[in-house]
Every structure is written in C-alpha cells, then in structure tokens.
Design a protein around this nucleic acid. Structure first.
Length: 174
DNA sequence: CCCTGATTCGC
DNA sequence: GCGAATCAGG
C-alpha cells in the first residue's frame, strides 16, 4: 500500500480528530500503526500533546454516564427527551441548543439531577451527537446528545467509534 | 499484558 | 520515504 494523496488526507483528518495511530491504521487498511506514526512524523504533523518525558495521552472521553441518582428517587424522571418520537420525526432547526443542553430535574430535596444528553430524536440538533443508544423499540431508547464535533454527527467519543469497523467497535465498547 | 506515541535504522 | 523493531510510558 502506498501513501496516495487521498490516504494522506485521511490520515491527517483522523489524526487531527484525535484517533490513535492503531485506529487510523485499521481504518486506512494495509498499514500498521507504526507506519501511521512514521508517516505522521514525516509529515511533521503535531504530535500528541503531552509535556514532560512521557508520551501517549491515550485519552478516551468517558461515555456519558447513565446518570446515577441517590436512592429514594423514582427510577427515571420523565421528560420529553426520553419519549420515543411518534412517527417520522424531523430534526429541529438550529437555535435551540441552549434549551436542550441543560435538561434537569429539581427534586423536593433540592438535588439537581442532570439528565441532559439523553435526547430523543426530536431533540437532536446539528450540534448534538446522534449516536443511538439502546433498543429503538424500547422507551429507553435515546441518543447520546453530547455536543458534537464540528463537521461531525457525533461527539468526540462516538466519532471514534463511528470510524471503527464493526468488529473493532466491540473492543472499544467493553 | 493491554494499550499509547516516539525513535531508530536498514531497506 | 518507508515501516518493523524497539523503546518508554500509562
């Protein structure tokens, strides 16, 4: 496999998005992660930021937690965000990001339960992650809803998964 | 051990 | 220029 302009361009894009060398190699195909790293250096692309003598940031954004709540609360605070949209819903227009980013429920004990980022289809905008979570036939079904990357339908975490072959996603999900 | 990126060096 | 081998760290 040779480094065509196309492949180099892809390499640059994925590296800039923060994918690891092995992930990029898997997506490009036909090259090892060493080849990717070597190429990155030859291209004088910025290495992974990390001061000191160390290397390897290896940071993977945590998947949005299923919002643990103190005992004594209802199993789930009902919100429209959790409701399964009926029929063919259409994405909202831009301009309502502020409304959905901080969906919260305040209980009588004054405890604020952040339940944002578990958005239904109709709550998605161009700036929210559209990674589906759960069984679409279940009321639990929702979308990630994190803030999405520029020019990506997904947040940083799910953008990485999206680039993986299906077989590789399993490993990342464990 | 799994992973990460960095570096070296024969090709 | 390329990338396997190796190194060093988390």
């Amino acid at each position: 496999m040779n480094w065509t302009d196309e492949r180099v361009e892809k390499l640059k894009r994925l590296w800039a998005e923060g994918l690891s060398a092995s992930q990029i190699a898997a997506q490009l195909g036909g090259v090892s992660r060493n080849a990717v790293i070597g190429k990155v250096h030859r291209l004088n692309l910025p290495g992974r930021a990390k001061s000191g003598g160390g290397t390897a940031p290896a940071r993977t954004p945590k998947r949005p937690a299923p919002t643990p709540r103190p005992s004594g609360f209802a199993a789930r605070v009902p919100t429209r965000a959790n409701a399964r949209p009926a029929g063919g819903a259409i994405l909202k227009e831009e301009g309502q990001i502020g409304l959905i980013q901080e969906v919260r429920a305040v209980t009588s004990s004054n405890v604020v339960i952040p339940i944002s980022r578990r958005l239904g289809l109709t709550e998605l905008t161009e700036r929210t992650c559209k990674w589906p979570i759960g069984d679409p036939m279940s009321d639990e079904f929702h979308f990630c809803g994190c803030e999405s990357l520029d020019s990506s339908p997904y947040c940083s975490y799910h953008a990485k998964l999206a680039y993986q072959p299906v077989s590789e996603r399993r490993k990342a999900e464990r």
